[in-house]
Design a binder for these strands. Structure first.
Lengths: 105, 105
DNA sequence: CGATTCGGTTAGCCATGACTTACGGTAAGC
DNA sequence: GCTTACCGTAAGTCATGGCTAACCGAATCG
């Protein structure tokens, strides 16, 4: 369970992979289509999609020789649940304090 | 703005750093206290805390020679907002489909 | 069935970053 | 003031992983 979070966070840590993920989030697409709008090669995109798939963040659907990728709500949901675990007492207590200090770099 | 997300996700991607983050989430503590319960050296923890701090995930408060770290709601909030952006039409539409298929590996 | 297109896989190179050891700096205690 | 405790920083080493180039498999079309 905790491992699920680890894999998901690790997957979203890479900038290129995050770009691919957001691209898929904007609408389903094939590997070639996604790679066309990126500065990396198609195999690189394929590798990234594999990582995202194993992280439960995207799913693939064969369509002839093509392969359409779309978002997978499972990974997103797990991440969200994990984040919500930190909305505890001390956090909301500190929230007021932080809102006042608000140091704009 | 998008950079804020990048830094936060990158910070949480490392297992050791995520352990430290969860430890801080369980309650404020000094560097030595946190390092005592981990298999890595104290400087390593210090470096990780620096990354977490720059990511807006924790804040530090001097207390004599000690330095107490606690959670920072800003980073968490930014991450949550970013995640919520993916709860769009296609995702909720796919949600039903996914619930039925539910392939338990 | 041969040619084409699309995608996943492998091998290898190279940059990033996590870790330890050693050091310097500051605040409390005798 | 001198020692002790606590922490951050610098330098250096080593493993992880992202990228490309080349190859192989599968499905469509003539």
């Amino acid at each position: 369970m905790a491992n699920r979070i680890a894999v998901a966070l690790n997957a979203l840590a890479d900038p290129t992979r995050r770009t691919i993920f957001e691209r898929v989030g904007a609408g389903p697409g094939a590997v070639g289509e996604i790679a066309a709008g990126l500065p990396v090669s198609r195999p690189a995109v394929s590798q990234h999609l594999k990582v995202l798939k194993e992280a439960g963040l995207v799913t693939d659907t064969p369509d002839g020789t093509r392969r359409v990728y779309r978002l997978d709500p499972r990974g997103l949901g797990a991440l969200r649940d994990w984040l919500d675990r930190f909305w505890g007492d001390q956090l909301s207590a500190f929230k007021d304090f932080a809102d006042q200090q608000e140091s704009p770099e």
